[in-house]
C-alpha cells in the first residue's frame, strides 16, 4: 500500500512582531502632521518681570506689538485707530475680555500709550502686559 502522507495543514500565522512598528509609525505620522490652530502673531522679545501672574487663556485677546510699531490682533495687522473698533467687537462677544499685550521690549512707549487710550475708549479696561519670569 502506498504510503499516503498526511498532508500537513499549513498553519496560518499573522506575524504580530511588527504590529507595534505599525502602531508607532501611525502615531508618529499623526504627531508630525497635526497642526494646531495657533496664532502666528509677530516676532517679539518679551520684557522680563518678577511679579507676574497668570492670565486666563479663555477670555484674553492677545495684542502683538513689535518693535517697528506693527500691531496684530487675531493675526490681522491693524493700525492704532482701528484698535478701538476691534476691541469693542471683542467686548461685545465677551464682556470680560482681557487685552493681553505681547509687546517687544524695545517698542517705543508712545505706541503703547496710544493703544491704551484706544482700549479705554473701547471700555476694555482689563489689560495685562505679558512678560517672562525674571530669575
Amino acid at each position: 500500500m502506498a504510503k499516503i502522507a498526511k498532508k500537513s495543514k499549513p498553519e496560518t500565522i499573522i506575524p504580530t512582531a511588527s504590529m507595534s512598528d505599525i502602531a508607532f509609525l501611525l502615531l508618529i505620522f499623526f504627531m508630525v502632521s497635526t497642526v494646531f490652530v495657533q496664532e502666528v502673531g509677530l516676532r517679539v522679545t518679551l520684557p522680563e518681570a518678577r511679579n507676574i501672574e497668570k492670565v486666563p487663556r479663555r477670555n484674553s485677546t492677545t495684542i502683538y506689538v513689535d518693535r517697528n510699531g506693527n500691531i496684530s490682533i487675531d493675526d490681522f495687522l491693524v493700525d492704532i485707530p482701528t484698535v478701538q473698533d476691534v476691541m469693542v467687537r471683542k467686548l461685545y462677544d465677551d464682556y470680560n475680555t482681557i487685552a493681553a499685550f505681547r509687546t517687544d521690549r524695545n517698542t517705543d512707549y508712545g505706541i503703547m500709550a496710544d493703544i491704551l487710550n484706544q482700549l479705554r475708549e473701547a471700555n476694555a479696561l482689563r489689560v495685562s502686559f505679558e512678560s517672562r519670569q525674571r530669575r
Binding site: 511679579n51 487663556r57 484674553s60 482681557i98 482689563r126 505679558e130
Partner: peptide
C-alpha cells in the same frame, strides 16, 4: 504656551 504678565485695570474713559 502659558500666558503670564502684569495685570492692570485702566481707568474708565
Amino acid at each position: 504656551d502659558i500666558k503670564q504678565g502684569l495685570g492692570l485695570v485702566l481707568p474708565p474713559p
